[in-house]
Design a protein around this nucleic acid. Structure first.
Lengths: 345, 345
DNA sequence: TTGTACGCGTTATCAA
DNA sequence: TTGATAACGCGTACAA
């Protein structure tokens, strides 16, 4: 096997082959392929039959080169977590399938200068028509401005508080966090700890604000509550949890700014022998896969990640078609009640 | 914003721009870009400076069209799990970066006829030079044969027992399962349950065989052990665990054929009030993210997923360069001891 | 309604 | 060692 002689791939079927078989010019085939008007129905049919018979697939590179568009859009992100990336990819992929576009997925390494170069190189080299930008890249001002300066079309997912006037798909993190906190208060909790998220993520502040909103509404003193800084991972969530549980007056509920940290809090409770949820309620945020894995399963905010990516792709596609689009589309969250929360002891 | 007038993207820098600036012909620029010999060092330098000055990036579509290769390779899979996909992608991406190639990632939906069409369309349309095929697609005979028939170059990841002579990157699942089982036996366990994996995955049988090997070596009767069928997810793992724990004579250790099912077993133990690991040891397989999330953390087999993908990409790249490559490359696994296993009670 | 001829940005051929 | 010119497969003016 693999003996020197490499058999050539079957020669590509081209538009000329189709034109010849159908007995028309390539331009007519082109029109049929692109669903353009101005082709007699019977001619169209003939061409379609020829296309089917030859299993003709137009060459993407040739199209990119000849036309104004490449039928390719890019998706860029910078490795938040496997689950998040997975959802984002699948959401965008689904939409591209429908629109008969290809999605070029690019995981961007490293920040700073090289990031900009990397993304611009992607745009230059692959001729993508536009970009869907997932967090945390969507919140990167320098990147966004660089793209804008070059008139690259893009739609952002959850860009945070961006004041940039480009289209984006968002979720109301603050309101969701407020609702979750109010839910805990409704369960009778009056001492509610909070684990803040990574300070570089804009959503962290929004969630923290929502937590404060709910306390204020209920007349609970925020400054009397235990608040610990986390960095969006299990380890820091666990440490934050331990610190709170070791307090002279530990909270009866802890709301963590994301699910990974909430999972850490649950682990901390295990370690301290504190039962969840009878002695401690724990709530998370994201509804990532881990929420259904930990025991007890996590009460959390379902963030419609895949839907957001899907919607972002839709917006981008519309934008490329020249349609007017709303600058910001907000998608709904859902509070998911699971086993980690219960009435205050 | 978005007012009708869509500003044009900055005009692309082309090879002609570079040639003009460097005062040479485009062919010379092309030679420099492709590191071809036959260019005087000083000429090469001049060209390189022009390239740098203009931030010139060659157009991938133009290259694909003109040349025999596209500098693009494809990665295809059919959504096993978020973590697996994530690792595979990152492994392949890293290698492509080094080789200065682009990776076109394609998640394939649906099986059967349409799958073949989908993959062939990918090859036809994008002009990818070759394919890295991840499981479970790598075990799909019909697909593999279809690709082979069209002389598409590919490398498979963990194809199972494939008798196909194409290059592949594998891991010794059977031996790993044997070693894990022997480890449990070494801890004093004599009654060891097994949760089998999805029957459609070839690795499931191999792991099951390894389990049987170890029992045989230790003179333990396999047929006396509780064995339950699972389907690689948490839910079925949990059900299998409950059935075993409810036995008149429950096992003191349970080895699940993947981590998700092992997590399910741990949950089942929680529900039955059986402490892990003092009364029940649990072992998994894969070392997926969940292994570090569950409590106690999971003793498991580390499957070098990212490395396998990286290696597969390397093999493919070599193959495309015409290098001879070993038909099968086997990568090492590692037994990771964590908190879920302990000496038999 | 249909077709002709040119151009997109590169690589490949062959001559200089 | 270098360069002119023809592909590559398609979209797009423009003509018929």
């Amino acid at each position: 096997m693999n003996v020197g002689i490499r058999p050539a791939l079957a020669p590509r079927k081209t538009i000329d082959d189709v034109a010849e078989l159908a007995g028309v010019s390539i331009k007519t085939v082109s029109r049929v392929m692109n669903s353009e008007p101005g082709v007699r129905p019977e001619t169209r049919l003939k061409v379609q039959q020829a296309i089917a018979e030859l299993h003709y697939k137009p060459s993407l590179p040739a199209r990119s080169l000849a036309g104004k568009r490449s039928n390719l859009i890019g998706l860029i992100y910078d490795n938040p977590s496997a689950n998040y990336v997975f959802d984002v990819q699948n959401g965008a992929i689904a939409r591209c399938r429908e629109a008969d576009l290809r999605l070029f997925i690019q995981s961007c390494n490293g920040l700073g200068e090289s990031l900009i170069d990397e993304v611009l190189a992607l745009v230059e080299q692959t001729h993508v028509d536009g970009l869907v930008i997932a967090p945390p890249l969507s919140a990167d001002r320098v990147l966004i401005e660089a793209l804008d300066a070059r008139h690259v079309r893009f739609v952002r997912i959850a860009p945070g508080e961006g004041d940039h006037p480009s289209p984006a798909v968002t979720m109301d993190d603050r309101e969701a966090a407020r609702e979750m906190t109010a839910f805990l208060i409704g369960l009778g909790h009056r001492r509610i700890g909070f684990v803040t998220g990574h300070p570089d993520h804009l959503s962290s502040r929004q969630r923290s604000d929502g937590y404060a909103d709910a306390l204020r509404e209920a007349g609970i003193d925020r400054d009397a509550q235990p608040i610990e800084q986390g960095y969006n991972d299990i380890a820091t969530g666990s440490e934050a949890g331990l610190r709170m549980l070791d307090l002279a007056e530990p909270p009866t509920a802890i709301f963590a700014s994301n699910d990974d940290m909430a999972a850490g809090v649950i682990r901390a409770a295990h370690e301290r022998g504190v039962d969840v949820p009878s002695r401690l309620s724990v709530a998370g945020f994201d509804d990532s896969q881990i929420a259904g894995i930990v025991w007890p399963t996590l009460t959390t905010i379902h963030q419609p990640t895949a839907d957001m990516a899907n919607e972002a792709a839709r917006l981008l596609i519309d934008l490329l078609k020249g349609k007017e689009t709303a600058p910001v589309t907000e998608l709904a969250y859902t509070l998911i009640k699971r086993g980690s929360t219960a009435p205050a002891p």
